[in-house]
Write a protein that binds this DNA or RNA. Structure first.
Lengths: 244, 244
DNA sequence: ACACACCATCTGACATGCCAGATGTAATGT
DNA sequence: ACATTACATCTGGCATGTCAGATGGTGTGT
């Protein structure tokens, strides 16, 4: 999508089989480029530029940009351009705190449901452990993703799931570059198993504790990686916060 | 704003002193009309219709509508129209669960800060108690609002505050009509005092407990009101969930 | 009386044109 | 050489035109 080829060729959402709007297509393409870092932080765009590159008019591009702005990935400055917001260490902390809050609530809800479905969650934990044995990082990451997704998807609160999903762009962006830099997540696997068991046992107090511990540790681990690999990371240390 | 008079006359955001875009103005006007129930649920619009009523072109209206759609207030059906989503009891539950999760995290963060500022929080609690003595419902609601706002604003996580703020449209919509129907919130005032004290004492465990209790009770109380005043409420009982 | 095909009309999706403000740069004054 | 000003150029904001799909009413055939 970064090759400047028309988006019109990809006019369908193959997964849902529903026709996708141009706005939707542009949104996903841009989001993807930002998350993977193909468009680095602080880059300035103009809507015309993007429209031309994607062979669309400015209208759907503008609408896509506004969605990205609402998600916090870009900032649009009237008569200046649209800027890809760089990720700072403080942002990583904030983003993770939000994700923790949403997912913990989901986990609590899930654990309290009578008709709960925790098969997917358990399966994800098992897969994680298997991946760990094989030292298969990609499989581990995938299972990890499924674990968190399963909890949110089955919590019974669709809005919460949607909100979490939308927020995911941010956590994913932060996590994207750490995948192959971090040590084998032995500790993390244990924690996931523990979280699953707390859900199964409906132990809300333990669940809260585990969640706080897990996310706090994950955050600090990521930030430590950022510090050590500042050169290749798209995440920058926070200069003392300019207000907006 | 509902009188069909041009929005152009209100071209400035008097609070922030920044010039407001037409999109922004349209967004706020529409949001206000939905929250207060002046536009009832299930209403179908067309962008042209709104544009004409506000004396604007369709472009800013479309953009405003998309923001409202992202917030979950309306649903846009291609080639059908834009529908104001009716509020159902399940929605109220979902919305409150999310608000609880976000605000609890904020409260935990606030209580853990070294340089925390909990003056505003305490002041709000005091005001609430005073309003209760005078049986001044409006003052109580205002203080209640300030209480929650103060916690979120001072938690040190701007993104969380923004997210909470955006979500607020939904909780406010649910709460709007209950203001003068509910009994005097004696219990609530006590709970707010307890929450403040838990924050001051950095008692995270108690804080979690209090939050869950408070929000669960508030939710059920509101739903009970809905049941008893179904005729005048914009919130309808949930028919067993049609999936989208 | 009823099923069904037809079509005027309405909708959102998208393209495009124009505008005012912000910017960078070159021309100007000192 | 340097500060200042004038202006061409770029940007997002907004208005408007076109189009295809969805809808609902009408007329036709049975």
């Amino acid at each position: 999508m970064s090759d400047g080829v028309s988006l019109r060729d990809a006019d369908f959402d193959y997964e849902s089989q529903a026709p996708m709007s141009m706005t939707e297509a542009a949104y996903e393409a841009l989001r993807e480029e930002i998350l993977t870092g193909r468009i680095p932080g602080d880059t300035l765009w103009s809507d015309r530029e993007i429209a031309q590159r994607m062979n669309l008019s400015r209208t759907p591009i503008r609408e896509a940009i506004q969605r990205l702005a609402a998600e916090g990935l870009v900032e649009v400055k009237p008569r200046r351009g649209t800027r890809v917001l760089p990720l700072r260490t403080d942002d990583v902390r904030e983003i993770h705190q939000i994700a923790k809050a949403l997912e913990l609530e989901a986990a609590l809800l899930l654990s309290g449901r009578d008709d709960r479905n925790i098969r997917d969650v358990e399966q994800a934990v098992t897969d994680m452990e298997l991946a760990l044995e094989r030292e298969d990082r990609d499989a581990w990451v995938q299972a990890d993703s499924r674990f968190h997704q399963a909890i949110v998807d089955n919590c019974g609160n669709r809005r919460l799931a949607d909100l979490y999903q939308g927020h995911r762009a941010l956590t994913d962006r932060a996590r994207y570059f750490s995948l192959h830099l971090r040590p084998l997540p032995v500790r993390s696997a244990e924690e996931h198993r523990a979280m699953y068991e707390a859900i199964a046992a409906r132990d809300t107090r333990r669940l809260s504790q585990l969640y706080h511990d897990h996310w706090n540790r994950t955050t600090e681990e990521l930030l430590e990686l950022v510090r050590r690999h500042a050169d290749v990371m798209p995440i920058k240390a926070s200069p003392r916060e300019e207000t907006k």
